[in-house]
Design a protein around this nucleic acid. Structure first.
Lengths: 140, 140
DNA sequence: ATGTTTATTGATAATGCTTTTCATTAAGGC
DNA sequence: GCCTTAATGAAAAGCATTATCAATAAACAT
């Protein structure tokens, strides 16, 4: 790993954060790079990747990986803390869900085994109502 | 897209299916290719990929994508019991844990939002007892 | 069995996302 | 302005996956 990022404020970082703030959806690094270029903010692709990673590490944005193996990013809506995503495996439609129960459960399990300093990752996948309807229609 | 697969039975396909059937866990295509080579079944990497894709399309196995963007596969019909992992972020020591509660919770949440055909991924990270002791000792 | 058809295989090349490298640039502090 | 070094970014490297395409071998007919 390299020197950790986020100790100086640069216009590139501001541009990436701003671009991400405007969109209320998951976008890939390359998408964001395009958006930035179109609007005239010349930011290197490498920097976009690095910045997104830094923002992710600091918990300022959410990442998840789509079915093509691409990482996609979004600014977290409710800064109201930790949450999970319910993602449609077909169209990507996402719902944010809270999971106090999960938090409690993982903490309990971990402590039971003597583990400390617990974190976890979790994603839920399913077919959203629209896509489910679509695929049953296709059956006929 | 090429001609769809699965119209002839070959030893390669049998080998891939068998390898996957033995393991009760998610494995990447390359992992499986290694497993096959070690046991003496010489199957080309390309064929492993193709076969896994075919098995996925026909619904015989599950895919999901890990946090590195790798596709990992598991033989479906998880009667053998779905479980999660509690992993030490320092030394990698892993404990397998069951999570009926999680299952129920994700299903409930998903149905609440109209999503169907639910799956989920989850990993728990922490410091195992040994590593925790080590790091407090280092403090002094 | 033998031949014919064509699905399947697999070594290699190509693709595409992401990370490294490293020389250059520019924040932040003096 | 000057210095230190974080940050940038073009180009190269890395890595999983997919496309190519000549060679092979199922399934089936003769």
């Amino acid at each position: 790993m390299s020197a950790k990022i986020g100790q100086r404020s640069t216009k590139q970082r501001a541009a990436v954060a701003a671009a991400l703030a405007e969109v209320d959806d998951f976008r890939s690094a390359q998408d964001l790079h395009d958006v930035l270029r179109r609007r005239g903010d010349l930011v290197g692709l490498t920097t976009v990747y690095r910045t997104l990673q830094a923002l992710t590490d600091s918990g300022d944005i959410d990442v998840l990986i789509n079915s093509d193996g691409e990482s996609i990013y979004r600014h977290c809506g409710q800064s109201a803390g930790h949450h999970h995503h319910l993602v449609c495996r077909k169209c990507g439609r996402t719902v944010e869900v809270e999971g106090k129960a999960i938090e409690r459960w993982t903490d309990a399990i971990a402590h039971e085994h003597g583990y400390s300093d617990i974190t976890h990752t979790m994603e839920i996948f399913g077919l959203c109502p629209a896509c489910a309807r679509e695929s049953t229609e296709a059956m006929s």
